[in-house]
């Protein structure tokens, strides 16, 4: 589905990604982990054609991304952006309908099938009752769901999700990732930039660690979700343990003891903090 080879790209004269290579097959769900500024969003941008590679290639279904026309590209890959600017007057339904733009004919408007796809997508993310609300009146989490609905309405074989979980409560988060998991089982391919490594371990089939624009590790959850890998990725000690149900690896920060040692030093020296 997606093949990235030796990708080097950046902004201005600042290189953000260095020689990144990987391939993603249909039905795979890849979590992209990494600290802030490690290049996760840049990678997603490049995959959807928003940034032209300085070096290397990106291929969607065996076709180079920059050789695809924008409409063809939008029928292959849909994006849920992280910080989306939205015109506030648009209704939620109109917003979801814009996901059908790549399917419009040269002259035609949105037809019954497009409305049905948009409504189905809204219902799938649990935003059916928001349909007539204005986008500007939504909470962050609601907007996030509407943006996902728009991407689902695009009916693409590849979904690029940038921080989908941001601003969602736990119940919504789980509901949306369950939904995505079902879509993945149907053969869709997911690439998700995430901060919550535990959610990644629960829902991804594969994890990639991105640090300073380079791939640190890449592999199935069980193989790469280790204290060594994650510790190196985030530069803090983490302890990894199996989830009480199912045994999927989970991680928690392991530096509490270290902090208290530091505090003791302060107390001994009798200096106010």
């Amino acid at each position: 589905m997606l093949a990235v080879r030796d990708l080097t790209v950046g902004y201005g004269d600042r290189t953000v990604l260095h020689d990144v290579s990987f391939t993603v097959r249909d039905g795979e769900s890849v979590a992209l982990l990494g600290p802030n500024g490690s290049g996760k969003t840049t990678l997603l941008r490049a995959i959807c054609g928003g940034l032209r590679p300085w070096r290397g290639t990106i291929r969607l279904r065996e076709q180079a991304v920059e050789s695809l026309r924008p409409r063809e590209r939008a029928r292959l890959a849909a994006v849920v952006p992280q910080r989306a600017e939205c015109p506030s007057g648009l209704s939620v339904r109109q917003m979801a309908l814009l996901g059908r733009y790549p399917y419009l004919s040269w002259l035609g408007g949105y037809k019954g099938g497009d409305y049905a796809a948009a409504d189905a997508a809204l219902a799938a993310v649990g935003a059916g009752e928001l349909a007539m609300r204005k986008v500007g009146e939504l909470s962050g989490g609601e907007l996030q769901r509407v943006l996902l609905a728009r991407a689902l309405a695009q009916r693409t074989p590849l979904l690029l999700l940038d921080e989908l979980a941001a601003g969602l409560d736990v119940a919504r988060e789980i509901a949306l990732f369950d939904l995505l998991e079902r879509r993945r089982a149907d053969g869709i391919c997911l690439v998700m930039a995430m901060h919550d490594c535990n959610l990644a371990a629960l829902y991804a089939t594969r994890i990639m660690g991105l640090k300073n624009g380079r791939l640190l590790f890449d592999g199935p959850v069980a193989e790469v979700f280790t204290e060594k890998n994650l510790g190196e990725l985030y530069d803090i000690p983490l302890c990894v343990f199996p989830h009480p149900q199912g045994g999927v690896p989970q991680a928690l920060p392991a530096h509490r003891a270290g902090e208290s040692v530091d505090l003791n030093i302060y107390f001994r020296q009798n200096t106010p903090i």
Partner: peptide, 24 residues
């Protein structure tokens, strides 16, 4: 007149418009 659909998509900004398949 033919551009009304493009205008709707453009109102989301260049980046999202391109992601939705518009040749901005």
């Amino acid at each position: 007149g033919l551009g009304w659909r493009a205008l709707d998509v453009l109102s989301l900004g260049d980046e999202q418009a391109a992601q939705l398949g518009l040749d901005v």
